[in-house]
Each structure stands twice: as C-alpha cells, then as structure tokens.
Write a protein that binds this DNA or RNA. Structure first.
Length: 882
DNA sequence: GCATGATGCTT
DNA sequence: CGGGAGCATCATGCG
C-alpha cells in the first residue's frame, strides 16, 4: 500500500511571495472588475507544480487568524514595524480561498495562533501516524520542522521553484540541526519579526556559539566559563531576551487544532468549479490548459458591414471618428492588409475588402483635415495607408502614445492587451484572436469583423480617458507638440528609407568568407581538431579542457569565452588572436553584411527600418528590422559597412549632424553646477577639464591620454547611470578606486551631487521622475528593501532626466527640421536618427543651405543654460560623412 | 517552432 | 547578489 503523504501549505507566506514575485506586472493581472489577481495566479502555479511533484493523499492550507496571537501577548512588539499588507493583496485573499475550494483543498485558521503553529501541530500528528510530510512555505524559519519524515520546501525567487530542506540539507546550509534554528533566533533575534535576541550577536556568532554549546540553555549553564569579553557582558545582560526570543521562534506542536488528518483527505480538483473561477479571474493560460477558452467579452457589439452600395453613409459620420487598419505581420512595411474598421461606437463600419479604402468617401475622412481621427499606433497606420495611396491627416488620439506617456510600462503593441492594462475588457487581445508565431493567421470572417468592430469602442473610450489623465499629469504639451507630431516625422523617415549598395555588401561578403576560411584552418590546426568556433560550449571545451588554458570567468552554463576573458589569455597561445579575429569578422559578416542584405526591399533597393517610439523607459527611440542604430563605427573593418549606405539619387550626398556631449550639457543645465557650466561656456574639452578636476591637475598640459580616458569613463558612468562596479569594469581598475573617483567627482561638482540627492528624494515622494518636457518614469523600486533594486532605482532617478531630456531635445529638433524642409520646399530628406545624431540625404544644389540649416535647427531646439554644440559632416556614403 | 543563454555592436 | 539599454545573431535543448 502506498504511504500516506500530507501536504501542508503556509497560506499567508505563499500569497505574500506570489504577490511580490509578480509585483512588476501587477497591472497586467486584473480581471474585468478591476480585481488584482497576481497573487492568486502565482498561488495557482505553485499549487500545480507542488501537487504534480508530491501527489499528496491529504492536504491543508493554513492561514494566520489575525494580528493578535499568543506571541503578541508575550511580546507587544512581535512583528511590530511591519508595513501594512498592500490593499492590492488583501483584496485577493477571499478569492484565494475560492481557488482552494476549486482544488478541493481545505483551509484552516486558528484564533491566537499563526499558520506556523497549525502546520507544526499537524505535521507532528502526521509523523506519529506514519505519514511523510511536505511543508511548503516562503519562510525559512519553518525548516526547524524538518525531520526524517518531514521535508520543508521553501520557495525560491518565483514561487513555482522550491528548495527542499531535509535535516541534512539544513546542516549543510546553515551548519546547525533543525532543532537549533530556534536557538539561533534566540541569540540573534529576527529583524523581520522584530524581536531582539542578544545585543551585537548576529547569525554568524550565534552559529559559532551553538556549535560549541548546542543550545541556549546549555550556553547559559556554562556562561561563567566564557572568557571576559563584551560579548559575555551582552549575553548576561540580555539573558531574559534570549530565552524569550527562542520561545517566540519556537513553532507550537500542540496547538488546539480542531481539524484532524481524516478531515483533509485530498481527492483532486473540481474542474467545473475551477473553469468558472478562472473565467471570473480571466486566467486564460489555465483555461487553455483545461481546453477551455476565456469567457466571451460579454457585451454584444452592433456593427455594419461596409460595401460599395452603402459606403455613402459614411458621409453621415461626425467630425471625430475612430479608425483601425489591420495588418497581422509586425513589419507593416510589407504586411498584407486583412481588414479595417471606421466609425464611432454608435456607428461602426467594418470590412475585409481593402479596395474600399480607395473610395473617395474614405479618402476624404482620413485625409481631409476636417475629420479628427482617433486610433491606435498612428505611425503604423500612416505607413500602411501610405502604401495604399492614402495620406492620413489630423490624428487626434493615438492611444498607444497616450498610454506610453502616462506610464512607460504600458506600451503593448497589442490593442487588446493595452486596453486590459487600463481596465477596459470589452475586447480580446490580438494574440488571442489571431494567434502568435507560426500559428498567427486571419480568422473566420465573422470573428475578424467582430474583433475589429470592438476596437472602435476601445479606442474611443480609452482615448478620452487617457487624454484626461494626460491633462492631470500636465503632459498635454508633450503629447500634442512632441510625440504625436514626431510619430508622423518618423513615419516619413521610415517610408523614405535609405538606399543600399548591395554590390558593395556582396563584395564584402566574399572577402569575409575567404578570410574566415583561412582563420578557421589555423584555429583547427592549433586546436588539433575541428569544432564549431561559434559555439561557446565547444570553444570552452577546446580552450579550457583540451588546451588547459587558465579559466578566468565562468558563466551559468560553463566557461566564459567573452572578449575580456580572451584578451587576458592573449600570449598563452596563438589560437587566441585567431579566435578574436574570427569573432570580429564573423560578427560583421553575419549581423551586418548578411543581416542587411536580407532586409533590402527588392523594389527600391532600400532599407526601411521601423522605429519603436513607445518602448524605452527613458524616451529614446529604438530601431528594428533592421536595427540601424548600431551600425559599426569604432573598428575600421566594421565601419566599412557604412560605405554601403548611399544617397538615393545621383549627385546627392549623405549628411550627418550630431550633438556633441548633449547629455553632459543637459546635466550641466539641470544641475546648475557652476564648474560644469563654466567648462561648457568656455568651450573646454569636457573630458580634460573633468580630468583636471578629479585628479587635481594644474592645467591641460598635465592631462595624459590615459588620464583623459579615465575621466571620460567617469563622465560616461555619470551619464549612463552605472555603478562603481560598472565603472571599475569599464576602465579595468578596482572597485574601491572607482568608488573614490566617483566621490572625488561629486566633491568637485557639488551641484551634480546635490541634484542626485534631490532626484532620489523626489522619486521617493512622488513615485516618479521627469524630464524637461514632463516625460515620466515611475520608480517603484526606490522603496525596495533589496539593496540592488533600490540602488538601481536611485541611479535611474538621476539618469532618466538626463538621458530622457536629451531624447526630448532631439525629438523637438526632428519636428522642427521636418517643418523647415516642408516650408522651404526642399528635396532633402531626413533618413535616420541615432540617439544624438540625424542623417540626411541632400541634393547638391541644397547642400550649402542644409549644412547651415541642420545645425542651426538642432542647436536651437531648446534654450539651455549652456550652449548646445552640433558637428556636421557629409560625403558620398554614410562612411564618408565623418 | 520556440525559448533561453552567450556574445557583441551602438550610444 | 549583481549592477545601462536595446537589438540581432548563433547554439542549444525542449516538445
């Protein structure tokens, strides 16, 4: 007969862990009533895993009964100073009980006792009756219950993974027996439960003492034998506290529990109940595991199917409408069109016949400036319509942009998902309707049309709601004057595209193929075998096992073979240089030569990137398919890639203008630091003047290239918000020295230090920081108890206004520049943006004008307390524009 | 087909 | 413990 297996779960602890494990995506886990569901979801995942793993015959979830227990009666301050349970978690607790009902697992609580004591009591009873017991908790203190019959499974970072504590594992991990855990607590106390222990004794000292004396009691019996010391005094002084703390830490094993093991047999879950519950909670993944689908969005939707006959009726639409053009492929430069919807929530018109868009009635609505158009992702829509010969004009609400400005995290490119994030649930996500990855496809016509119809109402409702929120946040200008106009500027740049000389790329391809083959032969000869050089795993085995080179660094999966490691091995063997060369060339060949060849449009020999305007946390753009913001420039071999980027007409040139030190200038402006401002106003070399200040030099004559390099790295660190550790890695110095550099920097530039402190303060007070254009970034981790998370949030608090304001400035410059090109009727086209740089193609007859115009528009985009400096160059290719 | 990890390019 | 962000490539292991 199979042994009886009891599962005991620490309900509060697991709920708490689940809640914080999914805290970042709190807003994604809500049902349509606005109930948060992240803790319930996490709890469910944990249950699924644990049940599958242990297959218990009996199970119980124990909860804490309330704030007062026998422990608070013993010690007033027990668990004092704990912050309140967040309301987003409390509201989930009743539903957790419902979840357990669905799983057929009883829950139990006992006045005056904690969940721990229920677990302690029942596990003892079960052990006596020959059960094997598993306890699941997020609290390591419960490992005191582990025994040869009882395993304590403590959740790791998520909640679905656990670490199993058996008595031998406790000893291995902590160096004491499970029974001695309470003695540790007695001596060291517990900060989270807020009881004291003995003054100045922490976990390490406690363990040392216990190894010698075994328990608190024995220790005090032999207290006189201790050598005279401060510690001895503290021990004697705090004797009472030690015994009390031990008692507080001790889990009761004889609590008056009124439920017996027979009452908690586990007989499996109630599927119907759970399906119902999941639908209420909107848990789609659990439903699909049970071969069920989410409940249909419950509001019926009325719409008309548009055709040639009834299209005239669109003329009755008011002067504010919604529009959505459906393209299933992420790349809207190439995607097929599969339908569209136009109208107002009261009057919705849908069709999968794209030809209808060419009707003048629709062209007038979308392109005439009298009708305001609300939509989701204006840039995408503009490009799509442009391909159909329609010029979109007069966008009003773009809910993707609005949502991103309100909170940079709410930026999904899926309308349904974005709607859910704002608690609008009368629409499914595109991922649900169309599928993802290889399975993505146009659904049945009725499903498609219904889904499209629902988009109109979502856009209208959210557009108005989000606009009101932008007004509250004082972010209207940012929306109307920067992001919305910028989206059209970007659309035009993407449509323009940049011409590529594919012959040049093919030429490089064969050149690199040949060189790689040569290096490859050398590497195989030096290794004594053939292997895949591109595989870090195989390469690691060759270098560190076969060739026995010293191991410098390890990764999660094995040996690190990254550049900094290989550079340290140079000289050990000629194979290293060959590998480094191989890496460089193979990177250029695969990512750039072949990568770019793949994305040239065959009809115009151009590359059309897609800018993501709503992705980064700082307000910067990003670029995909392909990424044109990381084309090589530092290494000459890679830089040659730029020779393939050429003007689209004969007799034109590529012109590039970049802001010099824009972030440091923004820093000088925002912080008001006198020294920094002075340096820029005097037109000094900023890295040299930084070097003079932080190294205490007399003047520029003492700045050596190496000193300047270090100062540059410090400036870099300030701008990118890196830590002392990051700085030390960048310039190969010790972390201590890096820390000293940063400290000296702050002493020399006190305005910067003051600014950083006030930024952190501000972030703590209001929960977010902002740029000069009121772009916001929320920093919830600023309150985190984790040093890492908190430190990162603190660096972000000062970095985001700097990097984000620089992003604001170039965005303004782009909008002004496009306006100038238009009003002056110029043929010059703005093609690319690379964070602090704009790239144009310019006909020769406009060159004289443009090379003055671009820098003047850029440096006057905004007025700062220090001047903005712009450097311009041009040539036949992007390479030559240097 | 898909997710994850290691690596390397830019600013 | 792991520390800038974002993109793309290749290898690898899973189903």
């Amino acid at each position: 007969m199979e042994k009886d297996k009891l599962l005991l779960i620490d309900g509060n602890s697991i709920a708490f862990r689940s809640f914080f494990a999914l805290h970042n995506s709190l807003s994604k886990f809500t049902n349509k009533d606005g109930l948060h569901t992240n803790a319930i979801y996490g709890f469910n995942k944990m249950l699924d895993n644990i049940l599958a793993q242990y297959q218990p015959t009996a199970a119980l979830v124990a909860f804490d009964a309330g704030k007062t227990t026998f422990r608070t009666k013993m010690f007033d301050n027990y668990k004092g100073g704990r912050s309140k349970t967040p309301p987003e978690l409390s509201e989930q607790m009743p539903y957790l009980r419902e979840l357990l009902t669905g799983y057929g697992i009883k829950s139990y609580e006992l006045p005056d006792y904690e969940a721990d004591d229920i677990i302690g009591t029942l596990s003892k009873e079960a052990e006596e009756q020959g059960y094997s017991v598993t306890i699941v908790t997020g609290d390591r203190d419960l490992t005191q219950l582990s025994s040869d019959k009882t395993t304590v499974a403590v959740t790791k970072k998520g909640v679905s993974e656990v670490e199993e504590y058996t008595p031998s594992y406790v000893e291995e991990k902590l160096g004491v027996t499970p029974q001695q855990i309470i003695d540790i607590k007695g001596l060291a106390g517990d900060t989270s439960d807020n009881y004291p222990g003995v003054t100045k004794i922490g976990e390490k000292t406690a363990i040392k003492l216990l190894k010698e004396y075994g328990s608190v009691e024995t220790l005090y019996e032999h207290i006189d034998e201790l050598k005279k010391s401060k510690m001895k005094e503290h021990l004697i002084e705090d004797r009472e506290q030690a015994f009390m703390s031990k008692k507080l830490a001790t889990i009761k094993r004889d609590a008056p529990v009124k439920i017996s093991l027979q009452d908690i047999n586990y007989e499996g879950k109630n599927e119907d109940f759970l399906i119902n519950f999941y639908q209420k909670m909107n848990f789609k993944s659990f439903l699909s595991q049970m071969n069920q689908t989410a409940a249909d969005v419950d509001e019926e939707i009325k719409f008309n199917i548009l055709d040639e006959q009834n299209i005239e009726q669109l003329k009755n639409l008011p002067d504010e409408i919604c529009f959505y053009l459906e393209m299933l492929d992420k790349n809207y430069h190439l995607s097929d069109f599969c339908g569209f919807v136009i109208g107002t929530p009261e009057n919705i018109w849908v069709s999968d016949d794209i030809e209808l868009l060419n009707n003048t009635v629709i062209k007038n609505l979308l392109g005439g400036s009298t009708t305001k158009v609300n939509l989701f992702d204006g840039k995408r829509t503009y490009v799509g319509l442009h391909r159909l010969g329609i010029e979109l004009d007069n966008i009003n609400f773009d809910i993707l942009l609005q949502s991103y400005l309100l909170d940079t995290n709410d930026n999904s490119n899926d309308l349904g998902q974005l709607a859910h994030e704002h608690n609008y649930n009368q629409i499914d996500t595109d991922a649900e309707v169309y599928g993802t990855g290889a399975k993505r496809a146009v659904p049945e016509t009725t499903i498609l049309l219904k889904h499209l119809a629902r988009k109109v109402k979502a856009i209208q409702v959210l557009g108005e709601q989000l606009q009101a929120e932008l007004v509250d946040n004082k972010q209207e200008k940012l929306y109307w004057e920067i992001e919305l106009p910028l989206s059209i500027v970007l659309a035009k740049m993407e449509i323009s595209g940049i011409k590529v000389n594919s012959d040049r790329l093919h030429q490089m391809q064969s050149e690199f193929t040949e060189r790689l083959a040569e290096i490859e032969t050398d590497i195989y000869r030096e290794a004594g075998e053939e292997f895949n050089i591109n595989s870090p795993k195989q390469l690691g085995e060759v270098l560190f096992e076969k060739m026995k080179l010293p191991v410098i660094k390890k990764t999660k999966t094995g040996y690190s073979t990254a550049v900094d490691v290989l550079e340290k091995l140079q000289g050990e063997s000629p194979i290293i240089d060959n590998i480094l060369n191989y890496r460089t060339i193979s990177k250029i060949k695969s990512t750039y030569v072949e990568g770019l060849l793949k994305v040239i449009h065959s009809n115009d020999q151009k590359i059309h990137t897609t800018y993501l305007q709503t992705l980064t946390q700082t307000g910067r753009l990003s670029s995909i398919e392909p990424n044109l913001q990381n084309i090589p420039i530092r290494i000459e071999e890679g830089k040659k890639i730029r020779q393939a980027f050429i003007p689209s007409h004969k007799g034109w040139h590529i012109l590039s203008s970049d802001y010099s030190q824009i972030e440091l200038r923004v820093l000088a402006h925002i912080t008001g630091d006198k020294h920094l401002q002075e340096a820029f106003k005097n037109g000094e070399d900023i890295h040299s003047s930084t070097a003079i200040r932080i190294f205490g030099l007399k003047d520029a004559s003492e700045v050596t290239p190496n000193i300047r390099r270090q100062a540059k790295a410090v400036n870099f660190g300030i701008v990118y918000g890196i830590s002392d550790y990051g700085l030390s890695q960048n310039i190969g110095i010790s972390r201590k020295d890096a820390k000293k550099f940063i400290e000296t920097y702050f002493k020399e530039f006190p305005g910067v230090k003051k600014y950083i402190d006030s930024s952190v303060e501000l972030a703590k007070e209001q929960g977010y920081v902002e740029t000069i254009s009121h772009r916001r970034r929320y920093l919830p981790d600023i309150h985190s108890s984790s040093f890492n998370l908190r430190s990162f949030a603190e660096r972000t608090a000062m970095n985001t206004p700097i990097q984000g304001s620089a992003a604001d400035i170039i965005k303004i410059a782009m909008i002004n520049m496009e306006k100038e090109l238009e009003t002056r009727n110029l043929k010059t086209r703005m093609l690319l943006q690379v964070h602090d740089e704009l790239i144009f193609e310019v006909p020769d007859e406009e060159m004289a004008e443009i090379k003055k115009l671009v820098p003047s528009v850029m440096d006057s985009a905004i007025k700062l307390d220090v001047p903005l400096k712009v450097e311009t160059s041009w040539g036949n290719t992007w390479y030559d524009a240097k």
